[in-house]
Write a protein that binds this DNA or RNA. Structure first.
Length: 260
DNA sequence: ATGCCGCTAAATTAGCGA
């Protein structure tokens, strides 16, 4: 089974590339983030024509996540149980399902945090704690299980192109990295993908200032899997080809092959 | 060539992203 996670930065704007990539890559299940659409706007019909169904948690202009599968989706849960609200709103940042009857997957879009000390930063840390609590049982279970998505945290210093550019910024702070460590503490391991070029598997490159051609990237799209999941991984890589050209997202897909 | 920000909703710009 080939699964993937991809922050597509609007499923509406990205639809031609998403459909083409699903066909060319042969992906069975893709976890997407930042759909930036309402449920009514979600392209169910176009995906169905390619044989995919979708579990969607989306409410409009911001955020939005989905699981898109051609091997079946069961026991769908929309949202993060026990998750915090931001300015009174439960934002659509998580959806989970059992895929192909063989693996349970979450697609998550962790809050950005904006600035250290901003209310959004506290919200980000609260969201991580709720995620940790919500996945603990599945992480410790026997069914292959993984949380995939845009974590908005670079786990280690080498996961950003230049640490000095991030001094005092979100995505690299100790509390954010401690939140990742706490999540791993439930029994999850970081499935690090291969880079297809250069020496580090960045997954995001800013649109501005030639970020991609200069390889000024970050590794913030992560696959955290439990033991049975990690044992089933036969390959993992960043499909940087999909970051190229007109109409690309600023994130590339992370692809994981599983023997399940 | 990988190429100098892109997306959305509601404007004729603002909010957001990391």
């Amino acid at each position: 089974m080939r699964i993937a996670t991809w922050n597509i930065n609007s499923i509406t704007a990205r639809l031609p590339r998403l459909l083409g990539w699903l066909e060319s890559s042969g992906t069975d299940v893709v976890c997407v983030q930042e759909t930036k659409c309402s449920d009514e706007q979600f392209p169910y019909d176009e995906l169905r024509e390619l044989g995919y169904e979708a579990a969607v948690n989306a409410d409009g202009r911001w955020n939005g996540v989905a699981l898109i599968s051609r091997v079946g989706l069961a026991d769908v849960v929309k949202g993060l149980p026990g998750g915090p609200a931001y300015e009174g709103v439960q934002e659509p940042r998580a959806v989970s399902a059992t895929c192909g009857g063989k693996v349970r997957l979450w697609s998550v879009y962790v809050p950005n945090g904006r600035e250290v000390g901003h209310p959004h930063y506290a919200y980000k840390l609260q969201w991580f704690e709720a995620l940790r609590a919500a996945v603990a049982d599945n992480a410790a279970g026997e069914l292959p299980f993984a949380v995939l998505g845009d974590y908005n945290v670079a786990p280690a210093d080498e996961d950003v192109w230049d640490l000095s550019a991030f001094e005092g910024q979100t995505h690299v702070t100790a509390p954010e990295r401690e939140a990742l460590a706490a999540l791993r503490g439930t029994g999850l391991t970081d499935v690090v993908p291969r880079p297809l070029k250069y020496d580090h598997p960045f997954t995001y490159w800013d649109y501005r200032q030639l970020g991609f051609p200069k390889n000024r990237g970050m590794r913030i799209d992560l696959v955290y899997g439990n033991g049975p999941f990690a044992k089933a991984v036969s390959d993992a890589y960043v499909d940087r080809e999909e970051r190229k050209g007109k109409g690309a997202s600023d994130h590339a897909p992370v692809v994981v092959d599983l023997d399940v």
